[in-house]
Design a protein around this nucleic acid. Structure first.
Lengths: 209, 209, 209, 209
DNA sequence: CATGAATGAGTATTCATTCAT
DNA sequence: AATGAATGAATACTCATTCAT
């Protein structure tokens, strides 16, 4: 796990810009978090990727754990998902959220910007990060999406939709199963859409199986 | 990540039983793998959980990596899933696979036997284990299930169903989102079932969105 | 340091022959001793080369140290050297001892039978082996050869001749310097001979330099 | 092999001086190298002798091997020998080189500064160090000294003289044979001198023995 | 006589972290 | 604000050795 780009030019003591340094560290941390997870990444690697001295991790974040927590919290995907949940009508939600997920991580093997509450699942073995992920999912899906669903078990149905997106993201961005790794958005959309329809519509009164 | 039970009282040299020792190590490894992932678990922890001297990991497996690979490969869930794919008619598959997934890992926070190709996703940041998971998913879903699906994109639809199961397992067993963590099988089944119906049926001729 | 031949056919629990096993272990130990020295060789390697179970080292010798001591002590070269010192006239000694040294270790890079008090110098970093070597050299040279030399400083002159042989052996068998590694016996002999003549003859009354 | 002085009292974090730390490590490594050889010395021992934290070995040298290679390469004796070969007339060379050798290692049992391409022979079982020693000997003797010798086989005769010095050093500094361990320089000199005369003079046309 | 199982101490090396400049 | 020096605890893995069969 040393792959990510060495980044940054070695230019003397480095430009003295606290904000930029902080932000570079966070970006590097996000990248490494999605690849190696919490325990699989060292602060040295992160600092190297950010082109920054290792000890600045401690200056700016206090500890490896806090750096990674902040990195995990800082997710564009999460923000976008939440915005979508407020603005977009239910029937367009599946496609919109699919787009968020697809943008969030580059296709498997690619090297684009890593992001998304989803890719961070890799880091779920670390307790504090798992809690953070759980909170995010709860707010965004169980609560926000759930409250918009008619019929029985709204939280559960919302979470099941989240499950599909999470599984999809994992298989596409991390594991690389043959179909999901390469299928384009437009082929994918109708299927995700129909899962959404099934889960978002009020279920028929449950006949015990 | 030192939580799992210290197991076994330190009671003299331990009974001399190669097969049992090997198996205890594998069980302990599976447990730790699902909790801390590959890099998050030390061989010492595994050995302690198994109530076994640390060096026996190397006697029996040669390296941490090989121990965890074998542990990851040894999955009842995988076997059952594949059996189901051969014996069970398509319309009963969703429920059957759901049961496999639910049995595979104990509900979040519990301490039962950890298992399943799914729960091991935690370990997906380690390359060799990720490949193993990828192979398993490809064989079981993309190929075996895919070959049974009528209509277009069979592998993709098979993988999407796998994605739902994976996401479900992760959220229930690992992350613990409020609804999925506690919902019982019978409440869950109809929803998973209807996702299965949507994905397993031949899709209508796709109208470009 | 795992090179030496795996030896011995894997033929069931192995022929039950205490003497042969002991002797195989000693031979393997000599071989490894000259290559990796005491600390650079593990009992497992020795046992593997001997085609024997590792624990037999302890059955037959009690400890790694004792195995290697016995191996170091068992030197054909030493025996031959001592015999030469008794039987051979002074003026033929240099050539005779040269032959002992040349036979003792195969030319550098070759894989013949390793032997000789000389090659064991490699193992001189281990205290008990160093003492053994010291004893051997003292008896053979300082005492036996020394007692045959006329004139002043006989022990010293005997040891200086030993030094030449030791250095020669080391450079030829172990280090592989360009000339000594390849020169044949007949080219070498006259030079060693003339050193012998200089050292064995009674020195002129020393004029303080 | 834990003998060498534990050095330096454990007195707080130690003075912050990179150059001094590096150099202390090298000195300690040289000392241990001549006593225990490569495999017989642990980085902990070296660090302890240097009065330095063990991890600094890796900060400054990257690995045990690189530390010991650099330690072995850093030899005053080698420098002096080479200087002598340039400046000193042939007939004074034996005595000059003898002095280098005698200065290089303290008399057996003493605890002075260890040095010299010669004493490092102990470490010759480690491949990279053996190569280094071989290179040094080749340059200094086979080539530099060889090129100054008239007559046949100049490299060989140069190497034979090196062999005498090496054997002498080993027996005096490492093995401790009775005469060589204690004899003073002035007693030793005439004998080494006469060996030099024999080897440096053009040999009589070789009559096949 | 021979072997496999088990063990504790040790090895090189890396990590997160702190201190002084 | 940024850096290099220093540190202690941990990690994977190996070793010599003993015990039970």
């Amino acid at each position: 796990m040393v792959t990510p780009q060495p980044a940054a030019e070695p230019c003397g003591p480095r430009r003295r810009d606290a904000a930029a340094t902080r932000s570079d560290l966070l970006t590097a941390a996000r990248l490494h978090l999605t690849r190696g997870g919490f325990e699989g990444t060292s602060t040295r690697e992160v600092a190297a990727t950010a082109g920054v001295n290792q000890t600045l991790v401690y200056r700016y974040f206090g500890s490896k754990e806090k750096l990674f927590e902040e990195a995990a919290a800082q997710s564009d995907a999460h923000r976008e998902a939440q915005k979508a949940l407020k603005d977009v009508p239910l029937e367009q939600l599946p496609k919109t959220l699919l787009d968020v997920v697809l943008d969030a991580g580059t296709t498997w093997g690619g090297s684009g910007p890593p992001d998304g509450f989803i890719a961070f699942l890799t880091a779920a073995s670390h307790d504090s990060i798992r809690e953070l992920i759980c909170d995010r999912l709860t707010t965004t899906f169980s609560e926000d999406l759930g409250s918009r669903l008619p019929g029985a078990d709204p939280e559960l149905r919302a979470e099941l939709f989240a499950a599909t997106l999470i599984g999809l993201s994992l298989m596409r961005h991390k594991i690389g199963t043959p179909a999901l790794a390469v299928t384009d958005r437009d082929t994918l959309a109708p299927y995700v859409d129909s899962i959404g329809q099934v889960l978002f519509a009020a279920p028929a009164t449950k006949a015990p199986e």
